[in-house]
């Protein structure tokens, strides 16, 4: 465990500076020499360009098929059509899947963030018996294969009469996401200078009020990061929904997406449009969280 903290954590850095991700690029001084322009192209822009093609073309391909009329072979989505979206949204049930997925993901986000805040605060601010054991247990959960817990979880949810209930997904997702979320959150709490809290307590605040008034506002980047991870993870979950829900009225977007893949209708427009529907919320959340991503990883995951 102590091995994880190989680098000194910079606790003096202000918490609200996700700017570290963009501001401080480590640049070997040799890089700015003259006459390096050609090598800079070969070393930097050529591989980056190639990789960008690899990243972007698949996204573009999906948009292309979603937006151009069936049967078209044009490489530009022109003339533009929304017929495929109409098909998946109205005829293939994506409206229901979408609503289900949103609710499940939002509730997972709520539970994971709230419990991670509680536990993360406890891990960062209290020294208590069993703390190291608890941390170790949290890390060990990462080795438990979620896919292989399908059978026993199915049995448990059957006992609790939660098969075919959205709660089975919310509970299972929260359970599997909490450990990492809590470790991340404790990293964020640790970055809030403890003196702020102490001085609030000297001023007569109780611990809870000191937390709400002083710590919580400074934790906003951490809450955004952890909440987004939870949302994305829950939105993307496929196997739990496949296993625990039978009623099509309860199904989620990934399972709906799989049915568009599975059916041999060869309706590539619908396949692509369903993909776009599945991608939109995640892309929006990603746009919000992406600047916290690197910081969040360095605050919590690596230096536990």
């Amino acid at each position: 465990m102590t091995g994880l903290q190989h680098a000194p954590l910079d606790r003096t850095a202000p918490v609200e500076s996700p700017a570290v991700t963009t501001a401080t690029a480590v640049l070997p001084p040799a890089a700015v020499r003259r006459g390096e322009r050609g090598s800079r192209f070969l070393r930097l822009f050529l591989p980056l360009g190639l990789y960008l093609v690899f990243t972007v073309v698949p996204f573009y391909w999906m948009l292309l098929f979603a937006l151009r009329p069936a049967g078209s072979t044009s490489l530009l989505p022109w003339p533009l059509t929304l017929e495929h979206f109409g098909t998946v949204w109205n005829d293939m049930g994506f409206r229901v899947y979408f609503q289900n997925s949103v609710w499940i993901a939002l509730l997972t986000l709520l539970f994971v963030t709230f419990f991670a805040l509680m536990g993360g605060y406890a891990l960062a601010r209290f020294e208590f018996r069993g703390r190291r054991l608890f941390m170790l247990a949290l890390l060990c959960t990462q080795f438990v294969p979620g896919a292989m817990m399908l059978i026993p979880l199915f049995n448990i949810f059957q006992t609790l009469d939660l098969i075919n209930s959205r709660w089975s997904l919310i509970i299972a997702e929260s359970t599997f996401q909490l450990p990492l979320a809590m470790i991340l959150m404790s990293g964020f709490v640790r970055n809030v200078p403890v003196e702020l809290e102490e001085s609030a307590m000297v001023d007569g605040c109780g611990r809870i009020r000191a937390f709400l008034a002083v710590v919580l506002p400074l934790l906003r980047p951490g809450i955004v990061a952890v909440g987004s991870f939870a949302f994305i993870g829950s939105w993307n979950n496929f196997l739990f929904a496949l296993m625990f829900l039978n009623d099509p009225e309860l199904q989620t977007v990934p399972v709906g997406l799989q049915t568009t893949i599975g059916e041999n209708t060869v309706d590539f427009g619908a396949l692509a449009a369903g993909g776009v529907v599945a991608a939109v919320p995640v892309v929006l959340v990603f746009a919000v969280v992406q600047k916290y991503l690197v910081q969040g990883m360095s605050a919590g995951a690596v230096k536990g």
Binding site: P58, F59, W61, I232, F238, T260, L271, A279, V282
Partner: peptide
């Protein structure tokens, strides 16, 4: 970084 947020099933579709 964006494909990081994409699910396995969506990767399959694409």
């Amino acid at each position: 970084f964006s494909p990081w947020a994409v699910s396995g099933v969506l990767t399959t579709s694409i």
